[in-house]
């Protein structure tokens, strides 16, 4: 990856209040500020639920999962909920190592998340 290439891409396919946001790329200390700004901005609007499609995320580290913890807290403060969907095995293992798989609602797919 070049230094100029955005490490994470963020695309909203369905707006709030039942938002679906697709993330792709690598989430690390470099991408956290952009991710935090985008997602926390969404959480401050009228929101019932946000589905975070992470099927395109190939890497996440502790700064990435920490950002999602902050996001979940903000969303729950607004009485909404967040569902993570489509985690690749290596990404899911980071949630398991940090035991955050128990803290988040995780669905196999966006469809499953929307049905939950």
């Amino acid at each position: 990856m070049s230094k100029d290439q955005a490490p994470v891409q963020i695309r909203t396919s369905q707006p709030p209040p039942r938002a679906v946001v697709h993330l792709s790329g690598e989430i690390d200390l470099r991408s956290v500020p952009e991710l935090q700004a985008s997602l926390l901005g969404l959480a401050r609007g009228p929101l019932e639920r946000i589905v975070l499609d992470m099927s395109g995320v190939t890497y996440i580290d502790s700064s990435g999962v920490g950002t999602l913890v902050v996001l979940k807290r903000e969303i729950e403060r607004a009485r909404a909920r967040i569902v993570l969907a489509g985690l690749q095995p290596k990404v899911r293992s980071v949630f398991e190592i940090t035991r955050l798989d128990r803290f988040f609602t995780i669905a196999d797919s966006v469809d499953e998340a929307q049905a939950s």
Partner: peptide
Amino acid sequence: DLDDVRPGGLGVHI
């Protein structure tokens, strides 16, 4: 302590 869910402090554990 991982039961204290909050951002930060996870790197060394990982």
